[in-house]
Amino acid sequence: MKITNVEFVISAVRPDQYPVDALPEFALAGRSNVGKSSLINRMINRKGLARTSAQPGKTQQLNYYRVNDQVYLVDFPGYGYAKVSKVQRQQFGQMIETFLNDREPLRMVLLIIDIRHEPSKDDILMYDWLKHYEIPVCVVTTKADKIPRSKWDKHVKMIKTSLGFHPADRHVLFSSETGLGRDELWALINTTIEEAKAEAAEAHEAEEAEETAEVSLEK
């Protein structure tokens, strides 16, 4: 995707703060310091728009980035950081659960996992939760540049096995340093948006056909 316009919109903590323009949304979930902000910066070709930090757990809101006035990338708070208080973890959990359950423009969750390590318990819980509620998910294994290319397949297999990865789900190998996977991930996002548009159009046509049939019966 050619990026022509990117804007940080809001750090939201409540549903009434979410954007209301109904653009499709793709949320990024993952443990603290897994590289979500770096991935966003690579995806939008901006070095510093999404703030990266050496301090895990810094992101405490849902950070909205609008791209080309067509789609939102939504950066979730990282999970699994021990120094975040129990109250904060509960607040994060409630905020994310509310968003995932109720957010109509959400099209997919990108579950970000470091390719070098086995998925954490929180990663597995998040994946299971998304599958249970039938929320589309793509597993993005980041930091591919940190291990030899010859070990990619072995590490990806280990991650998929640990997650209980469903064959129908998508996986993208990614590196924020080299740009590996960027075009593939944008292609997936664009395809998902087009499929959602087609489904909405079909539903609209079905509603119109039903209304026409009802009018005919009344006559």
Rank of each mutant, 00 (worst) to 15 (best):
K2P: 06
V6T: 12
E7S: 11
V9S: 00
I10G: 00
A12Y: 07
R14S: 15
R14K: 14
P15K: 08
Q17F: 05
P19H: 06
V20C: 11
D21R: 09
D21I: 10
E25I: 03
A29K: 04
G30V: 01
G35T: 02
K36Y: 07
S38H: 09
I40E: 08
I40D: 07
I40H: 02
N41Q: 07
N41K: 03
R42S: 10
M43E: 01
N45D: 12
R46M: 00
T52L: 06
T52I: 05
A54W: 06
A54E: 12
P56M: 03
G57A: 01
L62Y: 07
N63Q: 12
Y65H: 06
Y65N: 01
Q70H: 04
V71I: 02
D75S: 03
P77W: 02
G80L: 07
Y81K: 03
K83G: 05
V84A: 10
V84P: 00
K86H: 14
K86G: 13
Q90S: 14
Q90I: 10
G93C: 05
M95R: 00
E97M: 14
T98K: 11
T98P: 03
F99S: 06
D102L: 13
D102G: 12
R103W: 05
R103K: 09
L106F: 08
V109N: 10
L110G: 04
I112L: 12
D114E: 11
H117G: 05
E118F: 11
E118N: 13
S120G: 08
K121Q: 09
K121Y: 02
I124Y: 04
L125G: 09
M126D: 07
M126E: 06
D128I: 03
D128M: 00
K131Y: 11
H132L: 13
I135A: 07
P136G: 07
C138E: 04
V140H: 10
K143N: 01
K143H: 03
K143T: 02
D145F: 03
D145N: 03
D145Q: 09
D145G: 00
K146Y: 06
P148A: 11
R149E: 14
R149I: 14
W152E: 03
D153I: 13
M158T: 02
I159C: 04
D169S: 07
R170H: 15
H171F: 01
F174L: 07
S176M: 03
S176H: 09
T178G: 02
L180E: 13
G181W: 01
R182W: 05
D183M: 08
D183F: 04
E184Q: 15
E184W: 06
L185Y: 02
W186I: 08
I189D: 10
T191D: 13
T191E: 13
T192I: 03
T192N: 04
T192F: 08
I193L: 04
E194R: 12
A196L: 02
A196V: 05
A198T: 12
A200V: 11
H204A: 14
H204C: 12
E205H: 12
A206M: 15
E207T: 09
E208D: 10
E210Y: 14
E211I: 15
E211V: 14
A213I: 06
V215D: 15
S216I: 14
K219V: 15
K219W: 13
